[in-house]
Design a protein around this nucleic acid. Sequence first.
DNA 1: AAGACAAAAAATGAATGCAAAATGGTTCTC
DNA 2: GAGAACCATTTTGCATTCATTTTTTGTCTT
Lengths: 250, 250
Amino acid sequence: MKSTIPEAGVPITPPAAGNGGDRQEASLHGEILLRLRDYVAEGNIPEGGRVPERQLCEMLGISRTPLREALKVLAAEGLIELLPNRGARVRQLSQRDLEELFDVMAGLESLAGRLACEAITDEEISAIERLHYEMYGHYLHRDMPSYFQINQQIHESIVAAARNETLKTTYANFAGRIRRVRYSANFARKRQRWAEAMREHEAILDALRRRAASELSDILFQHLRNKRSAAIEHLAEGQDTRPETTSQGG
Amino acid sequence: MKSTIPEAGVPITPPAAGNGGDRQEASLHGEILLRLRDYVAEGNIPEGGRVPERQLCEMLGISRTPLREALKVLAAEGLIELLPNRGARVRQLSQRDLEELFDVMAGLESLAGRLACEAITDEEISAIERLHYEMYGHYLHRDMPSYFQINQQIHESIVAAARNETLKTTYANFAGRIRRVRYSANFARKRQRWAEAMREHEAILDALRRRAASELSDILFQHLRNKRSAAIEHLAEGQDTRPETTSQGG
DNA sequence: AAGACAAAAAATGAATGCAAAATGGTTCTC
DNA sequence: GAGAACCATTTTGCATTCATTTTTTGTCTT
């Protein structure tokens, strides 16, 4: 009974025949890596759930070799964890893990702001200002999803303005790690916190206009710190089960 | 003359029969990963040089499967790059790449200092003070290697005091990436810069004692920035060939 | 003699096969 | 009847094998 591919060809995502255009991977394992990363980040596998190789192989229509290569990379990225002889599991993020992740994100954005002050152009600032006002509109209309989307664009604009591809990549990596959590914590914001966030964003813009690197660095860190508090509180309320993952003794 | 690598059958490191004790990897690919990472980071393969699978397999006494898994991870870590159908190469760091890496390191240390101010104990500060004075002794005796070693310990202590394992891991990752460069740039410091660095370290200690988070953050960033300048200048002098690696368009 | 084309050789990418470990279920013992 | 032990099945880890692609080498043409 070696029906390796009983109903293969049922891809996780629509068969990437067109190759969306964002970034293509020539090799199979690269393709698999991109798809698996999204698959896991979008929460298709429950926290701590097993990642069965065989099943995924059938689902993706590939053999185990490239899949296992992709799993190793995902483990290195921190999305999953590999237990010796016991397969891969979706990494459970304890509350502490989340706090740490948010803090590192805060540090990266803080750095981005600092660097941005050195290199950002007036045009880029104008673009961020436009985003800011657009976001303000969503805020007034209490349109949380749109607000959140623009908010993310602003932060990404700051990271982009830092002119540091390494930072950008690292930032994206960490953003991917908490993506799974964000899916449920996006709307953690209370009204109170929302207004506060708007004020902070105005301060960010102000510091950016003046190219006040240290100040912007501080503001951004605090801004993310407050975000962290909101998210953590929200999660603490919503979930009773706060798994204590084995802290990877790095 | 294709063998840039020692003869086969000679293990990179003594066969880890005892398993030193720092961190053991049960799986073979994990073991390989650790060894290969060190092997590459220590500069055993020239910049941009090929990483021949077959040769490494013989050298390590394993098959290609676990080796390739390790290579994928190293590529994800940024130590090597994988060209489709053309194998792995040791990643060449352009001057720009180095600048970016140093800046990210600066951001991470800056963050570490900020976080450390929240959690560091008096005992930890005392320990860092002791290291500082020890380092000062090496400075007076112009003992550059010892100075550098203690210097690294101080920075690691600050990162440890941040109480953030994620940050610590990330920091170690980036430190590994520039390790190869540090091997040649360690002693880039001019006398002038050396004295300056000592003063900065005193300022760091001062801010740490006062738990002045923002201030320490600024000082640490600047300190690393100055380090960056010194290293980059040194490399610019020493090397004419500054390869323009294809900036990975993440 | 230099360049171009073609075939051989080598290396890479992925699939398959095999041994060891883990999981699950059943049976045996107390 | 409950718990431990044993065996079958599944799963994982690694080696081996097969198919492409690349690189090299040799020959031929201009």
